[in-house]
Design a protein around this nucleic acid. Sequence first.
RNA 1: GCGCGCGUGGCGGAAUUGGCAGACGCAACGGCUUUAGGUGCCGUCGCCUUCGGGUGUGGGGGUUCGAGUCCCCCCGUGCGCACCA
Length: 764
Amino acid sequence: AEAWGIADVVARYWMRRGFDVLHPVGWDSFGLPAENAAIKRNEHPATYTYANIETQAESFRRYGVSFDWSRRLHTSDPEYYRWTQWLFLRFMERGLAYRKNSAVNWCPNDQTVLANEQVVAGKCERCGAEVTKRELTQWYFRITEYADRLLDDMKDLEGSWPERVLLMQKNWIGRSQGAHVDFVVHDSKVTVFTTRPDTLYGATFFVVAADAPLAEELCAPEQRAAFEAYRDEVRKLSDIDRQSTDRPKTGVSLGVTATNPLNGEELPVFAADYVLAHYGTGAIMAVPAHDQRDLDFAREFGLPVRVVVDTGEPDPAETGIATVGDGVLVNSGPLDGLRKDEAIAKTIEILAERGTGEGAVNYRLRDWLLSRQRFWGAPIPVVHCGACGEVAVPDDQLPVLLPADMKGADLQPKGQSPLASNEAWVNTTCPSCGGPAKRDTDTMDTFVDSSWYFLRYCSPSYDEGPFDPAAVREWMPVAQYVGGVEHAILHLLYSRFFTKVLHDMGMVDFTEPFSALLNQGQVINQGKAMSKSLGNGIDLGQELSVYGVDAIRLTVVFAGPPEEDIDWADVSPTGSVKYLARVARLATDVAALTGDARDESIDKATARVVDEVTRLTEAHRLNVAIARLMELTNALRKGVDGAAPGAASLRDGVAALAVMLSCYAPYTAEEVWSRLGHDVEGGDSVHDSSWPSADPALLVEDTVVCVVQVAGKVRDRLEVPPSIGEDELRSLALASDAVVRALNGADIRTVIVRAPKLVNVVPV
RNA sequence: GCGCGCGUGGCGGAAUUGGCAGACGCAACGGCUUUAGGUGCCGUCGCCUUCGGGUGUGGGGGUUCGAGUCCCCCCGUGCGCACCA
């Protein structure tokens, strides 16, 4: 279901339970969509953005969501991005924001760099264009410094975050345990990372990533022409082509050898594209017997295959299948006879003694590239001075405002930030020496804006810092976060990183921002997504006009578990409309009853449903909770239509129903409340009432139905007291006509008794 | 290729620790009310049936007194990662 639908039920439930609930709303309003629209319309992005937000806010209001509109914020407001910039400067002070030159992901369509996380299957996450590489100097956040903590702290989230999200983050961070091993090429040290130092004696060649600067450095003069031709071919390949796994291995000899630090062996060095420049050190020792990729390469180039771990499997040189499992070391000098784990430890020990290597941990995670060559984002608050270099804009000069006079064609992407062409904006004075200087013209990735917004909600107009520490102490961390799984490794990882940094800065006293996470599904139509993100309810808006708010809300939540997508083609708001009308009629009929008669069966039905709906709501089993409310409605209807209605019990039942329903169908619930005689106009609202409680005495059943099986098949049902003893139940079951008939004279082997619910009579 | 998840009526979906499969609703069908019905009420609704019952949760096997639920294999499907050394 839609995020607002789920979150609103949960928020209203806790409000009814008497908690102070912070249920905020806001807009992550910087970003490419607004900028592209502004170019098309020849406007400033702000014009488009804020008009659009008003439309969406209007739409949100129609859903009757219990947002606290007084805390509403927009990340593109100067009073918000002032603090985004302020936080950037704090990161910079701590060495967590830095600039480096590197090959980066480049979207040729949006004309901007992208973070690793924003490249999906080789394509731009936003526009789908094939991503290419560019050599550029860019700003990064040093998220890799927090890799271990991001990984280790996940244990605090287990059970309250979806396992899938934790797994995705774990894979994304990709910690591998291994060793750095120093080889020698000519006279210089070349280090590789390996997870299998135990196989060092099995290395028969050495490979450097063709596109790594290292390949060029190592190349012998006589191989230079061949190498450059190969490298240029590799560079032409797109990421997608390069990543397809079943390509034959290619490469070129660099005409040099690398010395194995363990046995002194000279290994031929190749440049190849199956080794990645940006993982590990961009170079590997190749052990074809025990690594499939190395084996493929060895067979392609006729290189030797030497088994050093006997796994009991056939010879890789013959089968073409590398053996990667555990086994006993052979052909490995001092390692012979050891098992894999022992050999790994022993190798690291030997390498350390000789000073030619050490145990090491490597991550798949890379630093977060945060600068963008686009206009509609928070400007990076740095000034470049010929004399002083990179100089932070002083806090009291924040925010560095976006120019208000750029629009349309001024924003056309041209490979560098549109801000660069605005000389009045770019040219400034150095805060340090006072000399002429230029502003950094890049803006920040919008994921920076959204990495701390939840903190701002606690004190949205605080102006002495990004947030009021006292307010954050009161409200944070977020008790229940609701969002789509598409944020698993972007927003959710970045926010965790930010929180940890803020913790280290002493600004917050917790290390995880979101204590519990619910991944809601979305509303789709005939198998296709129709509302891409939270807030786009345009399609539902039409339905809402036809069926009414409550019917749409109920339909969305009742359709299935919150985590699942709802196909609008599968559900019918008509059913919800009828149900709500039925509840309203019930209220009228019950209000018309007089007297104080009670009916225990009604009281019990109410108590049972209150108890179950309470538990189901807390477990976010909202579709089942609605089913229980419908059952209660049916029971109350029968009570009203019965011969001797228990008026007082029915009134209490409908009142409890109204309060529970107020989380799902707030308008109908208020109407019911009013029909029951509450002075809604005078301020007696169902939305200020307390969640009903179930009298434990009413939850105790007088009798329970005991199922009697013969050979596992149900043959009879007995009404018995819940406290019935095993022996008594056994005799009762054996005396049953249906059981006697089913046994048909057969001898009994055993009788399983699970009092009071079940008896299973097993014949021989 | 590797990893994770999911397969229940015509449909959406229910089913504590293994213990009445199909709650609740949609659609459909029959009846009553109605001038009328996109209303309301009553009823039927997995499949087969000689009306006793038999059978049934993707397929096959296993554990168990008992399996939708646990284990193994297979099929289908969705998602994540994808040359990560």
